[in-house]
């Protein structure tokens, strides 16, 4: 989920950059030295997971997993998502440099919301854990799509149709995201409960 270079207006790009710098500062501050490898290697795993294409009817969707990143890493989701986007820009030219700020914020902030709202549910029984993961994963993607659509509409009023289509396209994907995130947290709860903190 990216906005390409050259599309958004200067105020939107600058606000995205400022918000992301704030998030990155908090995130980096929260990573203790002993957690540096953990954040880095989990980010590698998320990067590989986002390359998996999940079948969805006749089409397929690739995972974003920003909700899961948020649930597992909290504020460290900002550096985690930032480095993944930076690498995608350098290697594949997805997204872009000037949009790094707005793209990082749109994906990481909803992840942090999921961390605070749904993490409490992960210490209950299996069905509640699944529900927590489902909502955390699905809503993080919905909110991220809403942020990006909002950035488009603020840039240019006639983007409303583009932004609306973009948002609606992400609704079915967010359900898949929710189901997968739900099963992942149930699995982690079973196999390595300390990962859920």
């Amino acid at each position: 989920m990216h906005i390409s270079e050259g599309v958004l207006s200067v105020p939107v790009l600058v606000s995205g950059a400022v918000l992301s710098v704030v998030g990155l500062t908090i995130g980096l501050h929260k990573i203790k030295n002993e957690n540096i490898p953990k954040v880095a290697i989990l980010s590698s795993a998320f990067f590989i997971a986002s390359l998996i294409h999940i079948p969805l009817g006749p089409a397929s969707a690739h995972l974003v997993l920003n909700g899961l990143v948020g649930i597992l890493l909290g504020w460290a989701a900002f550096p985690s998502i930032f480095i993944a986007l930076l690498l995608q820009t350098v290697l594949f030219q997805f997204g872009g440099f000037t949009t790094l700020g707005i793209n990082t914020f749109s994906m990481a902030m909803p992840g942090v919301f999921s961390y605070y709202i749904f993490r409490g549910l992960l210490h209950r029984g299996k069905n509640i854990v699944f529900l927590g993961g489902f909502l955390g994963g699905a809503l993080a993607l919905v909110v991220a799509a809403a942020f990006i659509s909002l950035a488009l509409v603020i840039t240019e009023k006639s983007f409303t149709a583009v932004a609306g289509t973009f948002f609606i396209m992400h609704l079915p994907v967010s359900i898949i995201e929710g189901i997968i995130t739900g099963f992942v947290v149930v699995y982690l709860k079973k196999v390595k409960p300390e990962a859920l903190g």
């Binding site: 953990k38 880095a40 989990l42 590989i48 997968i180 099963f183």
Partner: peptide
């Protein structure tokens, strides 16, 4: 299918946790 993919991702995450501890 979704459950299988979730378990594949979960497996990758657990291996990552273990690797991170060794690396640290």
């Amino acid at each position: 299918t979704y459950k299988t993919y979730a378990y594949i991702i979960g497996g990758m995450l657990i291996k990552s946790y273990e690797k991170a501890e060794e690396i640290y």
